[in-house]
Amino acid sequence: MRFPGLVENEILKISKQRRFRVVVLILVVLIGLIVFAQSRGRERFRRGKDWRVQTQERMAQIQNWLRDGRMPAASQRWARFELGRLQYHLERNMDPEAISGPLFARGFANAASYLLLPLLAIVFASDIVSGEFQQGTIKILLTRPVRRSRVLASKLAALLLAITLTVLFGGAVAYALGGIAYGYAGWDAPVLTGFRVAGQSFDPAGIREIVLWKETILVYGLAWFAALCVGAIALLTSVVLRSTAASMGTMLAALIAGTILPRLAPSWDAQKYLFVTNLPLPDYYSGSPPPIPGLTVGFGAAVLAAWALAATAAAFAVFARRDVLA
């Protein structure tokens, strides 16, 4: 009857299922592995060399590649961007690869935004309606004096909460484990953001300096938003397919296609209207070159929001009307 009670029910069900513990475990193990691998890799990478020398060496290498002329167009854009970025840091006497616990935590949001966090959102969302069908409990759930739209709304609310907690927990684990390797200090370090490529050359006009903790909040906000939108879309597949495995498989295929497509077919312009292309919002914000020219944070967020709203509307329409016969 009371809506908070319904949401409480859904949270109870999510938290008592094994998948909840699995998600927690995935985050801890995966982040731990990344921290370990990265810190080992850096030891070898640096070999006691001065970072200035190393940066210059890297720039020379990239320039060689560019001169070579055999690079595909997408990589060329990346190379010019990287060159400009290194140059910019060098001029300001800043180590472009410097890392700290807070920086690692921020970097985690960038890296996790287009695969890991959406994946975890899918793990929760895929089951939230289809699980009731598979267990047969949908027959009780929908024969209680609560309208179907309210039942689904309570599930949506619990799902958004679970995704939010997952993003926050991921950030906390990244900071905690990253801090072990790189130290916990450095939240107020200045970071440079807004690197971009204009036409053929690196364009420094958009570069801004921002305090790391502010940028971290922004980046997590974007990763969170992207994960919520994926959750909303996965809710639709869960409602329509009524099978957790089918729903999860469909969403996974979409995610994987989204990471492959820009590389295989970078010239197909219309893919910027797909939701998967727009998941790396934090990257677009920090200024990594977008896979398709012309993608911005605002555009990406708008596309994601449109997908999420349409999927939610469709999920409610289907859920409220369809006969439960299985």
Partner: peptide
């Protein structure tokens, strides 16, 4: 827990 769950879908 099952009974509590379904009681939350009913009047107080």
């Amino acid at each position: 827990e099952n009974l509590l769950h379904f009681s939350r879908m009913l009047p107080p």
